[in-house]
Nucleic acid binder design. Structure first.
Lengths: 327, 327
DNA sequence: TTGTACGCGTTATCAA
DNA sequence: TTGATAACGCGTACAA
């Protein structure tokens, strides 16, 4: 069913049908006839043909590292809400945190002439930048601050500092379990906030109080094991993700230590699970859903204004203080 | 950058370039020239123009009820893995479980000429069926068994029966917290399995031992409250989802009862959280990730064979026995 | 207010 | 082996 058949059925030229669909001049009588025909046939103009002609696809490419992640899925939900409201469709690419896949999908997006891209990346290489430069589509980076690009990201640095302040109030020896610092947001900035706030409080940061883990409960468990074995005097641990914090909680419990009496715990992300475990875990709430919405709105702004003004939006945060911290 | 410019730069006709791209006859020398030009320019044929011409888009529409759900995101990950391997792109529609949205997106998919649709729905209305009938695209339904359609679904019925067998072995009074039965899979079939296996064991199912809740921890908590107030003699509860089971766990703990000594608990879905709470919750493992893969494979089969043979795939399950059940 | 004709970027047919 | 040309479905400038 195409516009020619509709035109034939309605007894008009296909230009008239096209005008009808695009708010052009059509007489009342023809308007009625065309309307009836379209309703009866359930005709829908072909998106491909339209975009070939109009050079606009209504498609937004979204690259995510891993869909089975609470923070990621919350952001995608936010993106989806805003885009769908504006009539855009979402072309999703799940890369499993694989650089090659990311690059591949950037190319796929170009091939599909997406109108814009929301890129939730964790690590950016030269290959990324050179490819992103090549693409003429507006790109909004979500979750990381990248100079020279429009982006929406979390205030990892200050959140970490605030978490440390919370811990030093009632703790003496603060441990840290971080993630790979190739991830600037969750890795570098959270660690930097931790270190600098320690220093500001006159505490010397020592290697023996620090560990690194993957984004997973099991990894958090193991890292805590290493950490506590090496430095049993630790009385507080800041974990770069909630999963790690949950793993830490498990290990601490097995050690027979009490939370928060013997050891305090703080995580990042405000995953649902932090409110379910016993004791519940104090954690940094990032507005992930809102970040997603915000990134989509920013992209829409760029699209409607026709100009990428490289706005950088740093989102707020708040501490969700639960039972794993003293006082 | 389009095929005409490439042709001009390479000093050949655009037909030759097209043949080069589509494995046609091209002499070695021209092949080289064209290859160089394409590599230097980074040219990619337009997907829109190709699909307009070839009547194939390489797009698969995927409708999901809610992305912030562990089971859904696992299935999407499975779908994504298989489709991306076969060079398909995924057009994602997150409907927030809203019927209107589902219908809207089915239409959007038609407009975009997706090659196929994977529909993860919970409740199917007449409007759904009439619209799905209209679409000439192959549809695979994921998560529900629907007569007359290709689908991949879980064995909710038998899983519920097995769960009941587990409970009756060491329990006497079995409670059930279900979800809305308009959802055939999680609502009707799990409940039916529960009821029939009770009967098979000579236990009379009574209304006072049954409750209904939404898919959420809080709702499970409240439902358990109602259930236990009404029937304090209950010593086992089967919950239609893990979230509900976690809510139940919270409430039971607040009642001062022990799990599993006083009350046993079983959930469905094998969410990560069941292994993290204390005590961990016995739960039915459905192969969600594999289901997603399976649905994608089924769709690919249909696409390559050109015939929708309405295959119905019932997936297996296994009990993940943890600490919330006796013995 | 309506219709004709062209072009968007491809691929496929056909003749050379 | 190559190139001219038609066609995919649509929107729009232009002429009527």
């Amino acid at each position: 069913m195409n516009i020619n058949e509709i035109a034939k059925l309605a007894g008009v030229s296909r230009a008239t049908v096209s005008r009808y669909l695009n708010d052009g001049y059509v007489s009342e009588e023809k308007r009625k006839v065309i309307k009836d025909v379209i309703e009866q046939t359930g005709y829908q103009p072909s998106a491909q043909a339209q975009s070939l002609r109009k050079q606009v696809t209504g498609l937004i490419g979204v690259i995510i590292p891993r869909i089975q992640s609470e923070s990621v899925s919350r952001m995608v939900a936010g993106i989806s809400r805003v885009l769908s409201e504006s009539g855009y469709q979402l072309l999703l690419a799940n890369t499993q945190n694989n650089e090659k896949e990311e690059l591949k999908y950037l190319k796929t997006f170009r091939k599909n002439h997406v109108d814009g891209i929301i890129f939730m990346g964790t690590m950016f290489t030269k290959a990324h930048f050179s490819l992103m430069k090549e693409l003429e589509v507006p790109i909004v980076i979500l979750g990381q601050q990248v100079e020279g690009y429009s982006c929406v990201y979390q205030d990892d640095y200050n959140a970490a500092k605030e978490a440390v302040r919370l811990l030093v109030g009632s703790g003496k020896t603060i441990g840290y379990i971080g993630v790979n610092t190739r991830d600037k947001a969750a890795g570098t900035h959270r660690k930097k906030g931790f270190l600098e706030e320690l220093t500001r409080n006159g505490i010397k940061a020592e290697e023996k109080y620090m560990e690194e883990a993957d984004f997973a409960v099991e990894a958090g468990y193991e890292a805590t094991n290493r950490l506590m074995k090496r430095s049993p005097d630790i009385d507080s641990i800041l974990c770069a993700t909630d999963s790690i914090a949950v793993g830490a909680l498990k290990h601490i419990r097995e050690l027979g230590k009490r939370i928060p009496d013997d050891i305090q715990l703080i995580g990042f992300g405000d995953n649902a699970i932090t409110g379910i475990v016993e004791p519940s875990i104090t954690t940094v709430h990032f507005y992930y859903h809102t970040s997603g919405e915000e990134s989509a709105r920013l992209l829409l702004e760029i699209l409607s204004s026709g100009e990428d003004f490289k706005k950088q939006i740093k989102m707020g945060y708040r501490m969700n203080i639960q039972e794993s911290t003293r006082k």
